[in-house]
């Protein structure tokens, strides 16, 4: 009796496909905001704040901010997906229990969640980039690679968020993660101003938090200025994804399997 369960990639992409399908069901409500948000940003910052701050980090302030916001768009969407989204799939809908009755392991399923978070990161940062192209804030050049950083950022925050979710028993607790971690990080990771401008005492914090490294990669691509230490940023992102992903899977397995 031949009995060959589908391959690892088949399994992971089958679940990924399920997420894509659900997402595409509401194409208008899901697909429009990623484009609207950068438009609002351009209207608000470009016409308002941008006039008072002519340049930052050697480029126009609008352009400086744009290279950061491409990344935060990926961060937010990936984080929502793997906190609230995952929690609901796990606890309310019991969608995971359904999947786990098929030849799919907890590991397959969660790797797929991370991959999906990366996909959303890719899409959201592409949307921001597209608007920046249309309004000529960024040139069409090597900048087309920025969504790839969005993808990596999405995977990293997907993994971090899954890890957070593994501790959360009540959906309200995610607020601590968002207002206690992600929002403050937004201000100290070089999105709004270069981390070099931070007081000496705070600088190490900026180097520890994950967003800083993503922003640095994005900015390098947006400005076309590359330095060797970008390799460290890339390694940080890959390592954080694996480490948080590993522990998230370990902890969530215990929760999903009695």
């Amino acid at each position: 009796m031949p009995n060959n369960p589908p391959s690892f990639l088949t399994r992971v992409f089958a679940i990924w496909h399920r997420h894509v399908r659900v997402y595409n069901k509401f194409l208008l409500s899901n697909g429009l905001p990623p484009f609207l948000e950068p438009l609002i940003f351009l209207a608000g910052i470009g016409l308002g704040l941008g006039r008072y701050i002519p340049s930052m980090g050697g480029v126009s302030y609008v352009r400086f901010l744009a290279s950061g916001l491409i990344i935060t768009a990926a961060m937010w969407t990936a984080s929502f997906e793997c906190t609230f989204g995952t929690f609901i799939r796990m606890e309310f809908g019991k969608v995971y229990d359904g999947m786990l009755a098929a030849p799919i392991s907890v590991r397959d399923m969660l790797i797929s969640e991370i991959l999906w978070a990366g996909t959303k990161g890719l899409f959201f940062s592409s949307a921001v980039l597209f608007i920046m192209f249309v309004f000529r804030v960024l040139p069409v050049s090597i900048t087309v690679l920025v969504p790839f950083v969005g993808f990596l950022t999405g995977m990293m925050f997907g993994a971090i968020s899954l890890f957070v979710t593994s501790f959360v028993r009540n959906i309200q607790y995610f607020n601590f993660f968002f207002t206690g971690f992600l929002t403050p990080m937004f201000f100290f990771s070089g999105v709004l101003f270069p981390v070099e401008n931070l007081p000496k005492a705070v600088r190490p914090i900026a180097e520890i938090v994950p967003l800083t490294h993503s922003v640095r990669l994005s900015r390098a691509l947006c400005n076309g200025v590359f330095t060797p230490d970008l390799v460290i940023d890339l390694l940080y992102i890959v390592a954080a994804t694996f480490v948080f992903g590993y522990f998230a899977i370990k902890r969530l397995r215990r929760r999903l399997i009695d």
Partner: peptide, 27 residues
């Protein structure tokens, strides 16, 4: 094949999509 005690259909998908997604799980 498993029919669990609690209904755990994917409410974000319709009837045929629920089956289709599962078929993919089996490759």
């Amino acid at each position: 094949g498993v029919v669990p005690q609690e209904d755990n259909l994917d409410i974000e998908l319709n009837v045929v999509e629920n089956l289709d997604v599962f078929c993919r799980f089996y490759g």
